[in-house]
Design a protein around this nucleic acid. Structure first.
Lengths: 206, 206
DNA sequence: GTCTATATTTAGATAGAC
DNA sequence: GTCTATCTAAATATAGAC
């Protein structure tokens, strides 16, 4: 029972609980008491292990951002795969991630809006996209295609929009589209095939 | 000076200030003091006019939702315009709206996630999309096109993703794409032409 | 209607027993 | 390390003077 309830250290229990609650409610709406309850532990232990709500949040935020950006950057800098393969791989793995943890996109966009400087510096993601293998391959695709070139950020916005938005808009989409959870997940899985095809269509459209 | 600082009633001043602060920070992170300060008024007046922070928030939320959904529903139920014209009109007017008030999408998605029941009932947006003229025209386009039919919600998710996501992801996109505000707005205006073309390409892609 | 001063409630943090 | 009880600070709400 190496991974059971009893085995996880108290510190890990707190972090796991904090992740759940912060992702769901964001920093401001989260009460440390909620985290303690979610962890099945005493409130005082949060401060014993992490000093303050803010320090605990910073850790969760950093780990979440690294998980979110890290996966993409690994794929984007693989010299061995084509542009099209990178798109497919990115779409597929992010959809899997967001099916498991649907609150991540909204959580990140939110906290990044509230505090744009905070983590941007620590992770220096500044030019990590523009200098990637993916960006170079994008230019090659553009040159091959000819016609009016499309700014890479227009492309990235569209890729992320197709990929990420359904999870951010999920509550609204469920209402206006009369979808239950099962149907929603089925549609997200369908998008693994659809989005890459659409991306191709967008790039060919000029 | 019918629209000047002095003319607006105190109630309007509070609502305007509340809109600004709530849109920027969300419910939990907003302090009533911030609203009072933004309005240039005394804190006690908020309770005099609106009883509580929560009631004031509900009003702002309702108005924001109605502005957001209302514009779309008006276009979507126009019998006189084609499917393609509706897409163009929707894209164009939402981009204009979000350039003026960039925080709206994130604000709505957020508060809808925190409290999905809250306003959904009041506005009964449940079948307002599926029963619209737009939905009927979408089916006609699908039939004309032939091949594997695409669920209308897959289409709506994509349209909204292309349209709305850049504004929700703005802080991140500005960092990873090294964009300033001016460049960002220029790109959003470009999308008024790009998105309808891409939508066409997506529908033709099968 | 508007303000100052104050009451009340809530939530983060800590002291001290075990 | 963990808990109970408590302190403190912050934020919402209200009483009462003008």
């Amino acid at each position: 029972m190496s991974d059971s309830e009893k085995d996880r250290s108290t510190e890990e229990k707190i972090k796991d609980a904090a992740r759940v609650v912060f992702h769901k409610k964001g920093f401001a709406a989260t009460r440390t008491r909620d985290i303690a309850e979610e962890a099945g532990l005493n409130l005082a232990l949060l401060n014993y292990y992490f000093r303050s709500k803010e320090k605990l949040f910073d850790i969760i935020m950093l780990e979440t951002m690294m998980g979110f950006m890290g996966a993409m950057m690994f794929v984007f800098n693989d010299e061995g795969s084509s542009f099209e393969e990178k798109v497919e791989k990115t779409v597929s793995s992010y959809i899997d991630l967001f099916i498991k943890e649907p609150q991540i996109p909204l959580f990140i966009m939110n906290e990044l809006q509230r505090n744009p400087e905070g983590l941007a510096g620590k992770l220096n993601i500044k030019s990590v996209l523009l200098n990637s293998v993916f960006a170079r391959q994008y230019q090659e695709v553009m040159n091959r295609r000819g016609g009016e070139p499309l700014h890479i950020m227009q492309f990235v916005m569209s890729l992320m929009g197709l990929l990420v938005f359904p999870f951010m808009g999920r509550p609204m989409l469920k209402i206006i589209g009369d979808l239950n959870d099962e149907k929603f997940v089925t549609m997200m899985k369908e998008r693994k095939k659809l989005v890459p095809v659409w991306i191709e269509a967008i790039l060919s459209a000029g």
